[in-house]
Design a protein around this nucleic acid. Structure first.
Lengths: 230, 230
DNA sequence: CAGTGGTCTAGACCACACG
DNA sequence: GTGTGGTCTAGACCACTGC
């Protein structure tokens, strides 16, 4: 096993630690066989990433989400990724373009083969390729954090498999805009692309507002996710 | 004195710890009279905020900046604050509007009285009032971090006092757009407003690329800021 | 191989929350 | 007041850098 920070992150994303569950320092220290200091460190880092919320003197929990939070998340992603794709269109080199096409080809292959499990990663690779080409490491770090939060949600609410073909289509148009260095079009297309993702996720989430049993762990008050986060 | 984290942050912003200077854990621990663990913590937090860069096994330094970094910084601010002002225009209440007008009145008063030292804070209050009205705490946190980095630069390169009157004018137009809930105009105005700030700062910075003596501390290689950060 | 950065242990200690 | 969260000390120890 790697360090406790990565273990915790994995356990949250994989759902072993459900949304809203308490994260007791000493308990985790015992579980992972370390002292409490590394656990505290890890919790602080994950707090910085947004996966964990820490209430002063009341302990840490896995972040809980509600529709407003998801909208906020996507507002930030839209704002940053439209800016990044604009820069990517301006600054891309032939090499960036190559990597971008490879990422897209990989994604298309996975969809064709029905490997829907891996599509989320491939989709992220596509977006990362664009954001790399933009050459703004600070923005890239922020967007990466948001992908991390997003992956927690996608793991629970699926990716809307029926719409993969439309995602591929969107991507192809975005690639073409980047090819011809058409930054305005690229930004418009990216904005719409992310907006669709937001709308689809919110729809799926609203159709299944109940959360699996584990999520109410330590939260006897209610079974719904939406009311917990502030 | 408060905790070491805030002390460090203040010392960096105030310039007591120049850009690029080394931050040795044991040295700081001795200086502030604590053990090395709290210092390590503080450095990690400031690293998360972007004020400090940590090179693995090579120690920590105060962040160094170069023109490209400033552009990246403003790209993120523009992307996020235009989004936020759009939401603010949609969601603002009468109370938000009141606070916004108060912040603006305060800023105008300071400029009228020639209190240029405090204008930067008042300017930030204005923007914070808008971002609060937008109601996206995650985005607000990111923007706040960028203001922190910005304040390090402003402290060194001044605020371009001659343009305060134009800032006031920009703000008034933005307020009016928010008043009439015209989110598109508000976003356009905000984009231009921040773009001006970026352009002015880059100009001032390029006119004075040399850095005060202290900044070359521990970096015998060169006196210029621009080449150090990667 | 010396120096330094970086992390962990083990335990003391304080502050707040909750019953 | 008791429990728990949260921080600090002091020191051991490992890893990597740069002579």
């Amino acid at each position: 096993m790697l360090d406790i920070e990565q273990s915790l992150r994995n356990d949250i994303i994989a759902g072993a630690l459900p949304l809203g569950s308490r994260l007791r320092i000493d308990e985790l220290a015992g579980r992972y066989g370390v002292s409490h200091m590394p656990v505290r460190e890890a919790l602080r880092v994950l707090h910085g990433e947004g996966l964990v919320v820490i209430e002063p003197n009341r302990g840490a929990r896995v972040r809980t989400v509600h529709p407003g939070f998801i909208e906020d998340l996507f507002d930030v992603r839209t704002a940053l990724e439209t800016m990044l794709v604009r820069r990517a269109a301006e600054r891309r080199t032939a090499d960036h373009l190559k990597r971008l096409r490879e990422a897209q080809a990989h994604l298309e292959a996975l969809v064709a083969e029905g490997e829907f499990e891996s599509v989320a990663d491939a989709n992220r690779s596509f977006h990362t390729a664009i954001n790399d080409a933009a050459g703004n490491p600070g923005a890239l770090m922020i967007v990466d954090r948001h992908w991390l939060l997003l992956s927690v949600l996608l793991r629970r609410y699926g990716h809307g498999e029926e719409r993969f073909q439309r995602v591929i289509d969107d991507h192809q148009h975005i690639i073409r805009a980047i090819e011809r260095r058409d930054s305005a079009s690229a930004a418009t297309l990216m904005g719409a692309h992310i907006e669709k993702g937001k709308s689809n996720l919110l729809l799926r989430v609203s159709q299944d507002p109940q959360i699996a049993d584990g999520a109410t762990h330590d939260r006897p008050g209610g079974r719904r996710l939406w009311l917990a986060a502030r």
